[in-house]
Design a protein around this nucleic acid. Sequence first.
DNA 1: CGAGCCTAGCTTTTT
DNA 2: GCTAGGCTCG
Length: 643
Amino acid sequence: MIFNVPGSSIDYSAQTNPEQYAAITVPEGPVLVIAGAGSGKTRTIVYRVAWLIDQGVDPHSILLLTFTRKAATEMLNRASRLLDGRAAMVFGGTFHSVGYSLLKKYSQSIGIERSFSIMDQRDILDALEQARKGLNPPVTDLKSFPKAKTIYEILSRTVGASIEIERVVSDRYPHFEEYIPEINKISHEYNNIKKKNNLLDYDDLLTESVRLLEESDELRAHISSNWRFLLVDEYQDTNRLQAKMVRMLATGHDNVMAVGDDSQSIYSFRGANFQNIIEFPDIFPNTRIIKLEENYRSTQPILNVTNQIIDFASFGYRKRLFTRRATGPLPFLLRPASEQDQSRIVTRLVLDALKHGGRLDDIAVLFRAGFHSFELESELARNSVPFVKYGGFKFVESQHIKDVLAYLKVSNNPKDLVSWVRVLKMLPGIGDKTAVKLANSIGKDFTTAGLEAICQKSGKHKESLSQLFDLYQRLRDNQTSLQEKLDTAVRHYLPYLQASFDNYPKRLKDLEQLASMSGAYPSVAEFLAEVALEPPEAENSDYFDTSQKLVLSTIHSAKGLEWETVIIIWATEGRIPSPMAFNSADDLEEERRLIYVATTRAKRNLVIIAPQTVYDRRLGTVPVALSRFFDQISPDSFQSYFT
DNA sequence: CGAGCCTAGCTTTTT
DNA sequence: GCTAGGCTCG
């Protein structure tokens, strides 16, 4: 099936190193590429795609699985530029989006209606809250009972790691052990709600598509013969289910190239298990293992620091990154007196760089958690430094966006009672109880007559209800475009928006932006799926210009990216490692890998800042220690310990 | 049963 | 800064 096409325009061996070249040109069979940070991992995947197509492989038979859709798009764009437009025909996306498209096509064969909707975070929590409140017998002390969010974490870990609720709770939430029976009940009820309402959550996209592949030999053979070459990026961050999905998709040909770095595994909270990368050769016999250890990104002084960080790791595969970029400034380790001083230092560094002809988008400020940058954000604003922020809260998660999307959701999947409740609660005089009651009667009969009957019955809400049903009918009209529908929904929502939020002009702007983004989608269903699977970030769309802006990012969101200058703030105990990681050695190791990911983003300048004090609203200003991960490093790897 | 007002408590990371 | 939850009144 592979033909040699003479006269390829690309000189693969000249543009890659011997290890990369070996990986790119494996004809068939399983390959595991252990790619150290900055070792040209993306380059290898891009050239691999081009090489396969160059060899005559049909681009439609290549599947590129990545961690975000953005990563897939970027790689395929690069491959297109390298080769030609054929590379754009490769299917690239996340495991979740592949699961979604498989289920859209074949879900009926496992008893799932095709019109299912995807629940996003908020829907999941709403449904869990519903199950939690509906416990029978009710829990007497809801205060000490786990919150919906905690229950979600437990359930998701259960699914992702394929273990029992009992084990997750006793391992990670021992303080909730007495509630295991109730948590099991809630899990059960939650599954019922999903089933009744024709809803799938994130985990279901994986479990159900794996089930689909498992249950029918015929379908599995059909699907795996369509995608004959799989490329999986960030393999260290896959969970058990995803590994299983890869195994199934490769049935019959084993043409899988998995690329990853166990030292950069940072998603275990989501069930990721870097054992996957270690066990890959067992699951795929005759795996070729190729290690990429030459680093093309950072200077030697930076690698001296990152190598020390990972040397202290208690397990994982030893690798020693080296570079030919021998010279460069020593990384800085600074200990300002306070958070305010930290913000001032960052601002000064940025403004200095600008003065010397640097570009703002060559600099990134990284931190452990979204809220760590709040103070810095206002300092930057005071000094008129433009910035974009990645990670932290998504604007689609904000209430007004969710409200408007709920209108679309009920019109797309009338069985979605979770969204019906949300929509009904916005009406005046309708709260939790009435909304649930009304939603249930809607669930019994979705026809126009059924809806009218509900209006007639509910005396005092008659008018607002009929307005709502009117909107619902209009949103179901196949003649109107998605954008018109969104406009209609926003217009309907406007009075409520004004009444509920002081800052409604700002929120209205968000809604307008949402409407403008919707233009690109052919249908409501696809738009909703997209928003749930790949939430656009408020300032990350084409709407805003991200060039010439300082980047603020959580370390998680910085994965795979690189900058000339990287500034890590809050490198202190209690921030990184986060206090949430203190009770488990494994969690602490993951914090170390986070530091490793953060520091390896830097090409030339690395600045680590650890304030000496932190303000605590109860205790006032208290001293904090330098993060243990930096404390272990020999001081002569840094310059100017104090400011 | 809903709405409005107050307070406490709190914040990891994301498909 | 923000919202989930409690409390009270209509």
